[in-house]
């Protein structure tokens, strides 16, 4: 265990833990955008910045992203002050210029007293805040179908060469994790469309309900070594089937004892 000080309070933390986890456990509200428990931190949004110092640093302070900074013995952390407020506010101000129509961004910016960006709205702005949550969750799933492409202000999240990603299995993880709902998808009839790629949805053999894409099912079957007919029925029907089987077993067992 490591002992450190956060906003004047001494706390204990596990070695290797990141500052942000400790801060959140204490119930302190530090804003984040790109942080998500399911994925590795990358420090894109910079909102979780805190100021750190140590007793022997002679009053010298350093701003670090708490999501990436591992806890250290004797560390003195400050999560809110004028400088940090200014950094967070400017970041949101900049995002407001790029994504003026995003509810997510406008709400966060409003908390810092920003109604309109100090900067001119960007003509090519969209709702993507470049938090990489989508690409990171895709990496976690082992597909890495999409990635940040291009550079600087032109950077976008896309498949290889800007085309429909060949490795995408239409699992929708990216769309669900996206904090600004920027990743669009739709299911029409038996077809799912995402990233300009079309997928066929599996129809439950029993009830006819559409479940997941064929590609996603095949991937899971292969990866988790599931039986090949595993996804032929939907979850509900599968549960029903199990319940029926169990019921039959119970009846049989009862009959046997009588």
């Amino acid at each position: 265990m490591v002992k450190l000080q956060i906003n004047g309070k001494t706390v204990e933390a596990r070695e290797g833990e990141m500052l942000l986890a400790v801060i959140q456990r204490m119930g302190i509200d530090v804003p984040t955008q790109c942080h998500h428990e399911a994925i590795e931190p990358t420090g894109n949004c910079r909102l979780c910045m805190v100021e750190i110092t140590k007793k022997n640093w002679d009053g010298w302070k350093k701003s670090v992203t708490s999501c990436l900074y591992p806890v250290e013995e004797g560390l003195i952390v400050e999560t809110h002050n004028d400088k940090l407020f200014e950094i967070r506010k400017t970041i949101l101000d900049l995002q407001l210029a790029r994504s003026p129509h995003s509810d997510y961004v406008t709400k966060m910016a409003a908390e810092y007293g920003l109604e309109k960006s100090s900067y001119p709205a960007e003509p090519q702005g969209d709702d993507c805040i470049m938090c990489y949550a989508c690409t990171r969750i895709c990496d976690v799933l082992g597909k890495s179908a999409i990635a940040p492409t291009m550079r600087g202000h032109e950077k976008i999240i896309a498949g290889p060469f800007g085309e429909a990603p060949p490795d995408c299995i239409g699992c929708l993880s990216c769309a669900h994790i996206c904090p600004t709902d920027h990743i669009k998808w739709n299911d029409k009839g038996n077809t799912r469309k995402i990233w300009d790629k079309k997928f066929k949805l599996i129809k439950c053999k029993k009830c006819g309900k559409k479940t997941i894409t064929r590609e996603f099912a095949d991937y899971l079957i292969e990866k988790r070594e599931l039986p090949s007919e595993y996804f032929d029925t939907c979850d509900v029907c599968k549960r029903k089937e199990t319940a029926e089987k169990m019921g039959e077993l119970v009846i049989k067992a009862r009959e046997a004892t009588i």
């Binding site: 894109n44 400017t90 600087g152």
Partner: peptide, 22 residues
């Protein structure tokens, strides 16, 4: 620098862009 910024973090990607515009 705007052209060469990797675009990963907000202050560099958006900040330098706006600084250059101004």
């Amino acid at each position: 620098l705007v052209e060469e910024s990797c675009g990963k973090c907000v202050p560099c990607r958006e900040g330098l862009f706006q600084l250059h515009k101004l």
